[in-house]
Simulated assay, not measured.
Amino acid sequence: MPQKQVPLAEGLFTWPSENPALIAGKCVECGFVEFPKKQRCLRCFSGTTEAYELPRRGTLWTFTTQRFRPPAPPYAGGDTAETFEPFTVGYVELDGGLMVEARLTEPDPDKLSIGQEMELVVVPFGAAGDDSQTMIYAFRPVG
C-alpha cells in the first residue's frame, strides 16, 4: 500500500497536483509579492495579502552543493549521517524578479549552469510523525 504523502507545511505549494505551484502572498494594497505567503505585507504593512500562485518555471540564479548532513533539528530529512547523499540547492528567479531558494533535483553540479531554465516539482523528503511521506518543493532542469 502506498504511503500517505503530505506537504512539509500547509500553504507552501498546491498539493496534490500534477502541475504544482508555489503559493505566494500578493498585497492587495501595493501589489508586492513574497514567498512564502505572510499574513501582512512586509513592504507597506497593510493587513491583507491574497494567495497568489507563482510561475512554475524560472532561471537558475545561483547554486551550491550541500556535502554534509545538516544538523537536526532543523533539518528533517529521512536520511542518517551514514546514508546522507550530497544535494544541490539554489536560487531560482521567477518572472517579476522574485527569487526562491529550493533544493534542486540534479545532484551533479557539473550538469547545472547559471541561467539554466528550471521547473517546479514536488519530491519526497522524509517521514512525518505519523509515518506518512513528507513532500517538499524543488526545481529540476528543463529539457
Rank of each mutant, 00 (worst) to 15 (best):
Met135Pro: 08
Ala128Leu: 07
Pro73Leu: 02
Thr48Val: 13
Thr48Ile: 12
Gly25Pro: 00
Asp108Tyr: 00
Pro2Glu: 15
Met1Ala: 04
Tyr91Gln: 04
Ala138His: 09
Pro2His: 12
Asp79Leu: 10
Gln133Arg: 14
Ala72Trp: 08
Tyr75Asp: 06
Thr134Pro: 05
Glu18Trp: 06
Leu98Asp: 06
Lys4Asn: 09
Glu93Ala: 06
Thr14Tyr: 14
Leu98Val: 04
Ser46Lys: 00
Val6Glu: 13
Ala81Gly: 03
Arg56Phe: 12
Phe139Lys: 05
Thr48Arg: 15
Pro36Ser: 05
Lys37Cys: 02
Pro55Gln: 10
Gly129Asn: 13
Leu104Trp: 13
Pro2Asp: 14
Arg43Trp: 08
Ala102Asp: 11
Ala76Lys: 15
Ile23Ala: 03
Gly31Asp: 02
Gln116Ser: 03
Pro74Ser: 03
Thr14Asn: 08
Gly143Pro: 07
Val121Pro: 11
Glu119Arg: 11
Met135Phe: 10
Phe63Glu: 04
Thr105Cys: 15
Pro55His: 09
Trp61Gly: 00
Gln39Lys: 07
Gly31Val: 04
Thr65Glu: 11
Val92Ala: 07
Gln5Arg: 14
Ser17Arg: 04
Gly78Arg: 10
Gln116Ala: 07
Glu10Asn: 12
Arg57His: 10
Gly115Cys: 03
Ser17Asn: 08
Ala51Lys: 05
Lys111Val: 06
Leu94Ser: 06
Thr88Asp: 13
Ile136Gly: 08
Gly96Tyr: 14
Trp15Tyr: 15
Gly96Asp: 10
Thr62Leu: 10
Val100Pro: 02
Tyr75Thr: 00
Leu54Ala: 01
Phe45Gly: 02
